[in-house]
């Protein structure tokens, strides 16, 4: 069996374990390329039946409009239950986007982590399936497939349950939960291979197009929303695309003319920088490890 099909089978096995052993699971859907694979895997795991859990999108309210449009269209097409949650209360005291570093800190804390923890609690989910991969980031390399979270949604990296073979310990007390990562063993290349092999639809922002952008630091940022512009900045039209999708103020684009999956993969293969390099959020003072300890996905 090829590596890709073995990874597929492993992910299906993991999702079925979740449905068999948890009372109220949810799948987090970020609308990005990893989520796209996750969604296809969920379809495969439960076919010919429907996906037996809802998909939840935690909307930071500064996502690309193209992502929201794609989300709603795709959800209607496949026909799963979609939950959208936002921390609208916190948004009222949001700092100006003129300072992206500060805005990102706010967004990560309140619009992502707090919003997620609030939503998980509100719906009483005891398991949340996510698309994180161990290869992505240094602290994720140590994450379990079934990763325990305490009453406060926190991760304790030094005190994780041992995880052997494919025997997952799914037991939690009331209020505790498990984050589940079926794509743990996938690499970025595997994600693209799978999208290509399965012909999975992805948000058009992954493909190159002439778009209005501004140069800030070493990244191209979208200029499609006037709130995002600093004083004196003049947008220019460039051929760009995104390697990874997040919020508009902090996710940089790369210059590219890739119009097909093959061309995207050619770029990914030649890439000399990791895919999160263009994300301001990952470069702040708080590391992914710290954010994960607080409950970040």
């Amino acid at each position: 069996m090829t590596h890709l099909r073995a990874l597929e089978s492993e992910a299906i096995h993991i999702m079925r374990e979740v449905v068999a052993e948890f009372r109220n699971p949810v799948m987090l859907w970020s609308v990005g390329k990893d989520s796209a694979c996750l969604l296809r895997l969920a379809q495969k795991a439960f076919a010919p039946g429907p996906i037996p859990f809802p998909l939840m999108h935690v909307d930071t309210c500064v996502k690309f409009p193209e992502m929201i449009e794609f989300r709603d269209k795709y959800a209607a097409e496949i026909g799963f239950r979609l939950i959208v949650e936002s921390n609208t209360e916190a948004l009222k005291s949001a700092p100006s986007m003129q300072n992206p570093g500060r805005y990102c800190e706010f967004c990560s804390k309140h619009m992502k982590t707090e919003a997620l923890l609030g939503a998980l609690e509100k719906h009483g989910f005891d398991a949340a399936i996510g698309g994180a991969r161990r290869e992505e980031e240094r602290s994720r390399a140590k994450e379990r497939v079934f990763s325990f979270r305490d009453d406060f949604g926190r991760w304790d990296p030094k005190n994780q349950r041992p995880e052997l073979w494919n025997l997952y310990n799914t037991r939690v007390h009331e209020g505790e939960s498990i984050r589940v990562f079926p794509l743990s063993n996938w690499t970025e290349a595997n994600i693209w291979q799978y999208i290509s092999a399965e012909d999975i639809p992805i948000v058009p922002l992954y493909y190159a197009k002439k778009r209005p952008v501004v140069r800030r630091g070493n990244a191209w940022l979208t200029a499609q929303d006037s709130r995002l512009l600093h004083e004196g900045e003049v947008p220019e039209e460039r051929w760009v695309r995104w390697r990874t999708l997040g919020c508009m103020p902090c996710t940089g684009a790369v210059e590219s003319k890739a119009l097909t999956i093959e061309e995207i993969v050619a770029e990914a293969q030649a890439a000399t920088k990791s895919e999160r390099e263009n994300r301001i959020v990952d470069q702040g003072k708080a590391s992914m490890e710290d954010k994960k300890k607080e409950g970040y996905f």
């Binding site: 290509s196 092999a197 097909t260 093959e262 050619a266 770029e267 920088k273």
Partner: peptide, 14 residues
Amino acid sequence: PHEGVSVDAARELL
């Protein structure tokens, strides 16, 4: 930065 990597190679990888 991606100069020199062919789409053929990518097709092969896929």
